[in-house]
Design a protein around this nucleic acid. Sequence first.
RNA 1: CGGGGUGUAGCGCAGUCUGGUAGCGCACCAGUUUUGGGUACUGGUGGUCGGAGGUUCGAAUCCUCUCACCCCGACCA
Length: 567
Amino acid sequence: MRMTRLHAPTLKETPKDAEVVSHQLLVRGGYIRKLAAGIYDFLPLAQRVLHKISRIVREEMDRAGAQEVLLPAVQPAEIWQESGRWSKYGPELLRMNDRKGGEFCLGPTHEEVIVDLVRRDVRSWRSLPLNLYQIQTKFRDEIRPRAGLMRGREFIMKDAYSFDVDEAAANESYDAMFEAYQRIFRRCGLDFRPVEADTGAIGGSRSHEFQVLADSGEDAIVGCTACDYAANVEQAELEPAQREVAPAGPALETVETPDKRTIAEVSEFLGLDATRFVKTLIVDADGTLHAILVRGDHDLNEIKLAKVLGADAVRLADDAQVVAATGAPVGFAGPVGLKGVESIIADHAVRGLRDAVVGANAADAHHMHVDEGRDFRVARFADLRLAVDGDPCPRCGGALKGYRGIEVGHVFFLGTKYSEAMRCNYLDESGRERPMVMGCYGIGVTRIMAAAIEQNHDDRGIVWPRAIAPYQVAVLPLQMNKTDVVEAAESIYTRLSDAGIETLLDDRNERAGAKFADAELIGAPLRIAIGGRGLREGIVELKVRGGDAVEKIPLERLHDEIRSRLA
RNA sequence: CGGGGUGUAGCGCAGUCUGGUAGCGCACCAGUUUUGGGUACUGGUGGUCGGAGGUUCGAAUCCUCUCACCCCGACCA
């Protein structure tokens, strides 16, 4: 491709609405443009990258036995009502009406559509297992789209759905997808880790996320430093610690803590470590208030709490609810004498705490020397907090360590949740009707593009992993007024292109500096610089993007050299 | 949805406080020049100043409403 013809408008300056590096470089490099919040145009360079990623995904999905389909983006409300998600999914589901007033939505995921498809035509155990996938544009009306392609509203996703006769077979399908995903992300050149995950709105019982490790990632994950256990912090199980319960401490005492509300403020004011505090959170679980206790240095995990309470929606109570429940303004809630809640539930780490500090349920006051069991009673202890560095691994007892990650893939074991709700049944060998056992598997294709950049860039631009680079080679004639330079570049370009190597020729009448800058921004893995000086010695310069070395390659050896580099 | 911020040419910005009819750099077009790390010069194209209403002789500027976008939080594959 000639740069004079390529539609890749590069920018010298970073647009101010781009904060994360992948967003900045994709805009500056002429890969994407924004149409609306979380909605982007993909320009030719981006489309080439997306094709590369999609191709890898297709090859591995096909290899794993899945078959590609293409399902509608616009879906009728009826099937969503049938699965129960029309009312459960919330405003993230973009709903609309057709001219006759019929209700539709833009598909955020395709369980309903695929189940509807399969239940109509698959009746026999002989047709199973079946795994169907598609690569298609999804729409989720995110509360706050952000970070460019990392969390858009419209994005390209590969979604696959497996149907099996029973749980054992479904687990095999799940394992096959797990393997395929590892191959896909490895081939894309990503440094990633599969982690155990929560099943979220999709539902189901077994789930793994594939997290690309990057400090800019939105997700917090923990990994064991001793074994290969890794999990989303939301999911990481924490066993109750085995420890001695100390004898009762000194008697409870109430102290003035004027205007000190947060653990940090009170802990500084009293000169006591945060581990000595009990944080009392008033939560609203499906309309019922509960007091949740976690140690001062720990954070509540609302997902674990929702499971423990068996609630659909758990949120922190608002100010008015807190005042009603505790009789004090926000910041002074405590378990001692607390009456205004349905129950008091505590994290394991609170059990047997002695000489603790808690809110006094009165403005500007806290209790000191509080003993759990003596001064307040807990209805139930459970694992309710987020894991932190140093927590014990639930598998081997080793130390957990926290990382940031970008979720590029997620696999779910669904069981019969959708097949039962939507009567997706088959006849087994004995002629009995049974629900199919399902799994679903997603990959964020556009998000992979962003994640690859987050992981592979420098201060000049993108450093593409070779497998997903839009072009492999950039050919730069450095002086456009020198006929021999232009001719050499043209000839190299033609020969590489004819050999099927994706090559960009920078035939613009620009100076060398501008060409170097754009080549580095766009990020082709190999760069050939051709100048009059080198040509007199019969050489051109080859540079690997991301490296430092500039190699002088004799013209006659160049073609073979490039081919061997790309092999 | 709560908090914070920004809307002036494709991009980055000044002008707004103190009202007088829009400017700078980059990009783009033409010409000259230059040709190994974003050449230099000259001349140009392009904006109903996010939108609506109001105040005023006069509004980018003051007032009211509204929309969009970004960040943090809550939420979320």
